[in-house]
Amino acid sequence: MDPNRSTLPFREFSHRISLVFMLTLAAALLLLGRAETYVFDRARQVVTDLAAPLLEIASRPVAATRHIIERTDEYAYVFDENERLRAENARLLAWKEEAQKLQAKLARYEALLNVQIDPAINYASGRVVSDSGGPFVDTVLVNVGAEKGAKSGQAVVDTDGLIGRIVSTGPKASRVLLLTDLNSRVPVVIEPAHYKAVLAGDNTNWPKLEYLASQSAISPGDRVVTSGDGGLIPPGLPVGLVIQTSSGELRVQTFSDRGRLDFVRVLQYEFPSKVKRQDPPEVLGGPVEGEAAEADAAAPPVSAAQAARE
């Protein structure tokens, strides 16, 4: 028998009582927490901001270890890698030329059509300092907070593509909801046919495509990019590739590697709803004679389009 039982009956009893009390309290917290009250949000921010510097320090040796392992791997394959990069470089140079031609062409078309060009997006760089820590949430902390201009809703990308969006910010750290989280929903477009869908995380490694039109013909290997619908996340950010699971379901393999998140950028994108109309450059301004009449004729549709945007 437990020696404590005979020697310390009172302590045993109080332990029991406190256990029952804590059980009730925990259950009450679970119910209260569902209401997402201000107190919990505030507590969360305070705890997160306090823990972020500690986690940042703790994540340094991890990053260093990872760096050493990567380096060792790189040394082992340095010749193969060099060969591969040469071939890729040759291929990319051809693409570069193509891209430059297309860029020039596109700029001309945009000028001709008087397209509202997206303003340049500012960003703040930071590091992922924590892991999700639990099996049911896929969020990470980044050391970019409100002091650096981070706001709830902003998109977060790494070198490979979109990783998620910010859901809460403290002064020094923010929480990023990853694409794979149960609560993550991101409007996307599936190229090349431009089918729209919503990328929905479900706590697996491969998010689902929801609200996809039934007749849309997408196939594994198609590229998925953000659509910009809703105005929260800028359009055209690379997200991933369509894959087919063994059960025949179409899901998305994200470009960013969930297990290797390190440096990220928080995009401070603002939906261009209040952008002034851009006039075409002088050189493309059309024939000189009768310009006033033509400008009058062109004005109504442009202003209507602008009104629709606003």
């Binding site: 259950a27 917290l29 679970l30 969360r44 909801l177």
Partner: peptide, 8 residues
């Protein structure tokens, strides 16, 4: 509080 999941 740290994990960002359901409180409690």
């Amino acid at each position: 509080l740290l994990s960002g999941g359901a409180i409690g």
